[in-house]
Amino acid sequence: MTDATAVPAERHEATEQTTIVIEEIRKRYGDRDAVAGVSLQVRRGEFFGLLGPNGAGKTTLVEIMEGLREADSGKVTVLGQQPWPRNVALLPRMGVQTQSSAFFVRQTAREHLTTVAALFGAGHDAADSALADVGLTGQRDVMVENLSGGQRQRLAIASALVHGPELIFLDEPTAALDPQARRDLWEVLRGLKRQGRTIVYTTHHLDEAEALCDRVAILVDGRIAALDSPHNLVSSAGVPTRLMIPEGRLSPEDALAIEGVDSAELQGGSLVLETRVSGQVLTAVDKLAGLNDVQTRTATLEDVYLELTGSLAGTGQDGDNDTEQQA
């Protein structure tokens, strides 16, 4: 498991490849540390996920990066500049997704975006291209009050993109979307990354973070509990892979004899093997019983997340969140 002490020390000097550098940021509300000494870097062009339970300090940390709040101590550099106090030279280079209520009232989607574009000093066709980016061209003349939840969500994202910023902050961008709309939006977000933009993104959807993010930081109680690529986090978590072989094809004793099998027991019509060297064990199983209908379940980012966040509350994960694949 990657824990706070195992987070590799990062170099904290800003380079051309670094979009955000924060060093030892602290923010206190009353007697509670909302952010308790966080250091991290977001690289240029990176899709960076910020995960953590409610109250972990995500919002405060993001607002410090956006320049909406002042840190009590520590240093923040965004695109080579200080975001606090309000830095009007920096603001046009950043895009911040707002709540999906932050629309100028009694305007059409296009009128709203044209107004936002003008606030940034962006050109007149910026609104149309932002509408196209989020797939709202068909709703351009619909009043913002009449848009569906998902459409409002997309308009809020378009408001963050309309001026072509280098750095985009997204807050739960897929929260109100149905599964298809969510996948559609993933494509929009991947498109932004392909354009070379840096994205800082907070979410509770761990599958989404795993699918989209280059790196994620898991924040617990105002501290970084883990920071790495989703792949490395899952690999280093040491959660075993489970192989499920239809009952009767292989005895538990024979399975335990395979090198690398940690445990073997019958569960719900399957012989379930746990291993940390799944490739080697699958090869052996193939020779002994064949791979037809053998299923593997690998750990996911959600397992890592639940272990990190749950262990602090004394509630470990139960392994129900594995992904399932046919071998």
Binding site: L68, S101, G121
Partner: peptide, 18 residues
């Protein structure tokens, strides 16, 4: 009141508009 409640003032705050 409405702009603040709907976070529209926050949106304006995040633009270079004075």
């Amino acid at each position: 009141m409405q702009w603040r409640r709907d976070d529209l003032l926050r949106l304006i705050r995040m633009t270079p508009t004075r």
